[in-house]
Design a protein around this nucleic acid. Sequence first.
DNA 1: ACCCAGGCGGGCG
DNA 2: CGCCCGCATGGG
Length: 276
Amino acid sequence: MQIIAKDFNLRHTIESGQPLTFFGDYSFSNNKTFLSYPVEYGKINVFGEQEGKDCILSIEGENYSKSELKKEIEERFGLKDNIKYIYKNIATDRFMEGAIKKFYGMRVTKNSIWETTLSFIVSQFNNIKRIRRIMLCLVERFGKGSFPGPDAIAGKEIAVCGAGFRSKYILEIAKLYDKELFDSYALLPYEDAKRELMHYKGIGDKVADCILLMGYKKLEAFPIDTWVKRVLTMEYGLHTKSIKKMHEFAKNRWNGFAGYAQQYIFWHGRSYLDKG
DNA sequence: ACCCAGGCGGGCG
DNA sequence: CGCCCGCATGGG
């Protein structure tokens, strides 16, 4: 099946440190991108051919009807997000304009709530390469090629995947995870959903915001990590160590699209403050 | 050898 | 509330 996705860049989207980068297989060459990611039953393969601002997607997925597959892709990659409207609302300074120009078409993805929860518990105090290695191990060892559900992980000997101190958080959330309950958080306002998530060990302020942004697709969520802190200080002149003040700043400046702003701050800031 | 990583929990003042 | 520390392990 084919979809022509306007103002969408598959490569930027999957390279930008979002869950698909953690557990999907991908490769790039020139303007072509390939991605294969595990779903509950089997895999979905996506071929993307970039033509300027647009991307021609060819998609394969066993056990999916054509309409189901289309819906999965549109939701997973945020193709229904009104990206031009979002850009218009957040591109109010040079830094953000530059970030959008450089990574035009990068979307905030929406992965399953469980995938996102597990991914970002693994992400804490960690680096992207190792996050990926750990996630791939969990998928291979416990998911048999598909993404492992909570039951496939709970009570298992997961130390082999090298998650270190995060293993105890993984095992606990796998044991406690109640799909209906977590699904119901989607109905709560952002602040309330965040408070609920933070009751679980291993989910703090930043991980909760990541889950809310990339699992629940609550676009007002603003995950604050080391890179975001650096950019807020160096580019936005916000000299504070208070996470609370940073959230207030983001809310006032980007309002309901702080999550999109954050994804561009994170990825652009990381690539140019770091060196690459 | 050394420092850092898309932080968090727990303890303290 | 703010601050400080330890944390498992691998990448650079």
